[in-house]
């Protein structure tokens, strides 16, 4: 059985992505406990690429040098990784539960017959068995699972493991693509130009953020009034944006913006993991929700069980009366 733990590394520009640093954190923990080696796997970068220095937390780096892999293509990346994983048989393969990870994890798992732990919150070896914890039902429940399979894949949920970053000259193994990259089934065409935003929620000190619990579009004015009274801006969770009640530029969370305001007031937001990812680092989090079991209360500093359409106006009034 191989003693390698692989981390499929992603970059933002020339820096390792936060999700990959956290996956490296998870990998190092498992490696230290069992005398295993951590290999960061990079697709599409040259062996001499200085960006690889940001993967110093790994023991070694394996990079597939073909420039055709630099832009993420689900089909090509799966092709290459399927070949590498079958050939080198790493014991554990970790990746972020990211837009790219969601393409790679399930497909590789189906092709290789290696079990996959999605939304992985915790991971450890118990002898030869891998024990992982996955997050279900929007974070309302956790499921602990085990598998004795020879190779296990895991998509690591954001914020579950400490990010480990180290800048150093790390030993790099640079190889050519083990498979042909001809005729890809998915071809990257380019990035969309972002919509011009009416407001930049990432710059706001105070965010009054509304979720499904706000009830209807008409009630968003309740949040706007409070935001105005406090000197803040209204943001939202995904369902509110999907309903077309607020623009995409105001969305907080995995597929929206990551924010770090002084106050994040979550009104009627239950706190799905994808949302928490975008706001858990706010200085002060206040949550209002009718469901006392809502996961948002796990990350909030202060919580109120109640209807936000009642509490927001009361709060606006209380703030306004402070003169």
């Amino acid at each position: 059985m191989s003693d390698e733990i692989w981390v499929l590394a992603e970059f933002v520009g020339d820096q390792v992505a936060q999700a990959s640093s956290e996956a490296l954190g998870a990998a190092k923990r498992s490696a230290e406990a069992g005398g295993r080696r951590v290999v960061a796997v990079v697709l599409g970068r040259d062996g001499g690429d200085p960006a690889l220095r940001s993967l110093g937390a790994a023991d070694t780096v394996l990079t597939v040098q073909d420039p055709g892999l630099k832009d993420f293509s689900p089909a090509l990346h799966v092709r290459v990784l399927e070949a590498l994983l079958s050939d080198r048989k790493p014991r554990l393969v970790l990746m972020g539960n990211t837009a790219a990870g969601l393409e790679l994890g399930p497909d590789l798992s189906a092709r290789l017959g290696s079990p996959l732990i999605a939304y992985c919150r915790n991971l450890e070896f118990s002898g030869d068995t891998v024990v992982g914890t996955t997050q279900l039902y929007g974070g309302k429940l956790l499921l602990e699972v085990e598998t004795a399979a020879a190779q296990v894949l895991a998509m690591v949920a954001a914020g579950s493991f400490p990010a480990v970053t180290e800048e150093r000259d790390v030993l790099v193994e640079a190889i050519a693509s083990p498979v042909s990259l001809a005729d890809p089934e998915t071809v990257f065409l380019g990035l969309e130009v972002a919509e011009t935003a009416d407001v930049d929620i990432t710059q706001a000190d105070v965010l009054i953020s509304v979720g499904r619990g706000i009830g209807d579009a008409g009630n968003i004015s309740l949040a706007e009034e409070l935001a105005e009274a406090l000197g803040g801006v209204v943001s939202a969770s995904r369902p509110v944006v999907d309903q077309g009640w607020l623009t995409k530029s105001r969305q907080v969370g995995k597929s929206g913006k990551t924010v770090k305001p002084k106050l994040y007031l979550a009104a009627g937001i239950s706190g799905a993991p994808e949302h928490l990812e975008g706001m858990r680092d706010a200085d002060l989090i206040v949550a209002i929700n009718t469901d006392a079991a809502a996961p948002i209360f796990e990350v909030a500093d202060y919580g109120v069980v109640g209807d936000c359409t009642e509490i927001l106006p009361a709060l606006t009034e209380a703030v306004s009366s402070q003169g």
């Binding site: 689900p74 089909a75 799966v78 837009a99 969601l102 393409e103 994890g105 399930p106 497909d107 590789l108 798992s109 189906a110 092709r111 079990p115 996959l116 732990i117 999605a118 939304y119 996955t134 279900l136 039902y137 929007g138 499921l143 699972v145 998509m155 089934e185 998915t186």
Partner: peptide
């Protein structure tokens, strides 16, 4: 809500050996 072992769409694509984007 309960994709403990991965999302069914890409798993299906993997089994079919079809292209996928999620």
């Amino acid at each position: 809500p309960a994709d403990a072992d991965g999302q069914v769409g890409v798993l299906l694509a993997g089994n079919l050996r079809w292209a996928h984007v999620t």
